[in-house]
Write a protein that binds this DNA or RNA. Structure first.
Length: 273
DNA sequence: AGAGGGATCTTCT
DNA sequence: GAAGATCCCTCTC
């Protein structure tokens, strides 16, 4: 039974010449919006994307935990096929160390076809499919097999396109998504930014479809909550380590840990109880 | 507001 | 064969 379904799926994938629903959504988006009154501009108006500052190789070349924290407040930029730019401020990340980290895809130092990007130069994207339907995006850091998972973004620009990309991937007609629902989760931000397997192993310092820009207001140490990672099970010491980082009080974070925040406040004398 | 289950398929054992 | 760095919908309190 499942076998038959699988065959059918493969067949339909061949026929439609695309196995990624998100790409279909993207194409629909870029062809249906914009009306048709504007000329195809991309070919003749090649814009300089590097006029503004961009995060370079030396930024990504830092230890995993350090990079995971340094990402907070920085901006992810995605240029859609139609030229529109999506901007999102990184507000939540997770560090996945190599070898020793039992929760990492690179545990035991094992390199496979899937996780190869984790072993590539810092700043390389590692995109994998999860549960057969969703994608998650990581950025390779310094350290063998280490990478940082991007968990949540605060949408800054291109919110209409994000909403459209998020909406087209659901079944029932739902109410319009609120701003905070666009990118609060690793697979949601991939949907909103049109990031799929085609972005695996791309270089953030070289690619013309995706890159990072330094944020204006970067958080201080006291603004960063360090707590446990999400979705890796309860077994083992590695599940308990504080390797998830998010901006305290930011409403675009996917999972808030109030207990840890209270403890932080008590330690730092930031509460007046 | 929180709990529970279904979707869906690639990857590695 | 089984698991999986998730999301969404539905049901119940």
């Amino acid at each position: 039974m499942p076998r038959k379904r699988k065959l059918l799926a493969q067949l339909s994938a061949l026929q439609s010449n695309s196995s990624f629903p998100q790409l279909d959504a993207l194409e629909n988006l870029s062809t249906t919006t914009g009306g048709g009154c504007s000329p195809k501009s991309s070919k003749y108006f090649v814009t300089e994307k590097k006029n503004s500052s961009q995060l370079e190789a030396d930024f990504f070349n830092q230890p995993c935990v350090s990079l995971a924290k340094s990402f907070l407040g920085q901006i992810l930029v995605r240029k859609l096929p139609d030229g529109r730019e999506l901007w999102g401020r990184i507000v939540e990340t997770e560090a996945y160390l190599g070898g020793e980290d039992e929760a990492s895809h690179s545990k035991g130092g094992k390199q496979t076809q899937r996780n190869a990007a984790m072993f590539m130069k810092p700043g390389t994207l590692y995109v994998y499919q999860i549960y057969g339907i969703y994608f998650c995006v990581n950025v390779s850091s310094q350290g063998e097999g280490a990478a940082v998972l991007l968990r949540s973004l605060e949408p800054l620009q291109g919110l209409d396109a994000m909403r459209e990309l998020r909406r087209t991937s659901r079944k029932a007609p739902t109410k319009q998504l609120k701003d905070w629902q666009l990118c609060n989760g690793p697979s949601r931000l991939c949907q909103a930014f049109g990031i799929d397997k085609a972005f695996d192993q791309r270089d953030l310092t070289q690619d013309t479809d995706v890159w990072m820009v330094p944020g204006q207001d970067l958080p201080g140490e006291e603004d960063v909550v360090a707590t446990t990672r999400i979705g890796i099970g309860n077994r083992g010491e590695w599940a308990q380590k504080p390797l998830r980082f998010y901006l305290r009080g930011n409403k675009f974070v996917s999972v808030v840990d109030k207990k840890t925040e209270r403890e932080m406040a008590a330690r730092g004398h930031l509460s007046c109880s």
